[in-house]
């Protein structure tokens, strides 16, 4: 659905390329996570992929269209939700959706149904200027769904949302994936990336040192051990055991049989730690 080959981009007037020869493919119905610290080139990549930035080197094919030869009809099947909600503050939620629906030539979804999906029905006639950040984010998200997009670009879709609404958004994203929508997800949020994305790309300084499946990354970089915290003579202690033949480990069995266990955790690598390990960079900069 998206094929990027040797993509490089330098902003006009700058000597340094922001994107350096990056290549990746995204299949239809896949949620592809794009991770990296601020300034790594994630937003620039997204802007190239949704046709906002021209003058790049390399080849970018999105939904069968070579972006160097695209016309406006390309946007009939693309949905974009930007990181910062860019809405008409003086219009109501419903008016915002109706106005944006008028910018498409193809049939659009019922705005009331979309508002219902993210619990904004009761606020449909409220001016967006009086919305909380979370409400604006939800409206911003459903606006990207107006035109039945086949490819959806999402930038930090759960930023500023309470856990309940973040759950609703993630369920909608997973549901869209089930319907065959291809999703390009840019995020800092490791838990979201781990939960939603089949594959991840780590971006650092305009390059993609790692593109792999979420499961493979966790297996490759995780420690195959379990950490047990327990009380011995009223003193809290901790010990780590290899997962290999754990049931035959006498010391481990002794501890769980005879002592009071406080916690037991397998030592899987967090995506954040994997990122630091493979790129040498902190994710949140």
């Amino acid at each position: 659905m998206i094929q990027v080959k040797d993509l490089s981009y330098t902003y006009p007037g700058s000597d340094h390329p922001v994107l350096k020869n990056i290549s990746f493919d995204i299949q239809q119905g896949e949620i592809f996570g794009f991770l990296g610290p601020s300034g790594a080139g994630k937003s620039t990549t997204q802007k190239v992929l949704n046709g906002l930035l021209k003058g790049y080197q390399g080849s970018v094919i999105v939904n069968g269209t070579d972006l160097k030869k695209m016309d406006r009809s390309f946007y009939e099947k693309i949905g974009v939700a930007f990181e910062f909600p860019n809405l008409y503050m003086k219009l109501t939620a419903l008016e915002n959706l109706k106005l944006f629906a008028s910018f498409f030539n193809s049939a659009t979804r019922d705005p009331l149904e979309l508002l219902e999906m993210v619990n904004l029905s009761a606020d449909q006639n409220t001016r967006v200027s009086s919305f909380s950040k979370g409400m604006k984010m939800r409206l911003n998200f459903i606006r990207a769904l107006l035109n039945h997009p086949e490819i959806l670009f999402l930038d930090e879709p759960t930023a500023g949302l309470d856990p309940g609404n973040a759950r609703i958004m993630k369920d909608i994203i997973l549901d869209l994936k089930q319907q065959g929508v291809t999703i390009f997800l840019t995020t800092h949020h490791m838990d979201d990336a781990g939960e939603l994305c089949k594959r991840l790309a780590f971006m650092v300084n305009g390059s993609l040192p790692v593109i792999d499946s979420t499961t493979a990354l966790k297996l490759k970089h995780g420690k195959k051990s379990v950490k047990v915290e327990y009380l011995q003579n009223e003193e809290p202690l901790a010990k780590e055991f290899s997962l290999n033949e754990l049931s035959e480990n006498q010391q481990f069995m002794e501890i769980i049989r005879t002592l009071k266990i406080l916690t037991i955790h397998t030592q899987e690598a967090s995506l954040e730690n994997i990122f630091i390990e493979v790129t040498g960079h902190q994710l949140k900069q």
């Binding site: 946007y75 930007f82 860019n86 809405l87 910018f103």
Partner: peptide
Amino acid sequence: DERDGGIITAISVTPTGKKG
């Protein structure tokens, strides 16, 4: 006002586009 609010960018990714 629309530029400050990022509206022009949002319209740029619709078939209407910046010129429309």
